[in-house]
Amino acid sequence: MSTNSTNVVTAGVNIDAPEKANPCSRIIKTKGRSLANWVGGLLILGALWWLGGYMLYINPDTTNFADFGPIPTFKAFPHLWSDGTIPNALSASSYRLFSALGIAIVCGIPIGILIGRSKVFREVSNSPFQLLRMVSPLSWEPIAVIVFLSWNQAIIFLLAIASVWPVAFATAAGLAKVDPAWFKVAKNLGANPWHILIHIILPAITFDILTGVRSALGVAWIVLVPAEFLGVTSGLGYSIADARETLSYDHLTAMVLVIGIFGYILDSSCALAIKKFSWHHKEEP
């Protein structure tokens, strides 16, 4: 046997040099571990929830609140779905959320571009924008109710004013990072200001805009539920308030769970969109 061979034959058994890991199996292994961790995290949360419900159940003073536990909650789901509570609440809240997010995007991106491109606008707008940003969105509610014709419009306004700042500031931050040489190259190739906006600025800052939209979505989702506590007769916030007033704790917890799941889906969709539309270190398919 040659001395530089990588194989060693011992008692008829061929012991190869350590095999190179198959990239495919490595990916499956990594993904499998991630999935296991994801499921594990949810199982821990479920276990803690069950434990909390059980503690309420075994204590005679709190037995009435045992419906907060997971079993009564999951039992309530079919009923809440079939009587239209969940679909109607989701539909009403989604309409408000996406209308507000649309307004925030339409207003926030141009504001962000102006902040990023115009020094004068940046300096003039800095103090008023920072001041307005620090006002709690819900504190606008009394004014919104007076100004707008319906509660629905007032809630959309509250969500829009909460979510416009993350979009605007993320856009401005993205623009600050854009390589100025790209503008010079584009001008050199005959680009006019419109070309620069559409073909250079917007693609260059897509990642930052989507990150801003993701933050805006999170803020709007948090503001949505308390905003729907008052005035309206539809939406996730209203359903929770209604369940509390009728002492239907299983319904209340089910609606909380719906808010969590739907919010998680929305946030994950944003994260996927950021991954898909980001050009940073894009690899070939």
Partner: peptide, 9 residues
């Protein structure tokens, strides 16, 4: 230019 400044997207 000195650097290619290609558009990375």
């Amino acid at each position: 230019f000195q650097a290619p400044h290609l558009f990375p997207w």
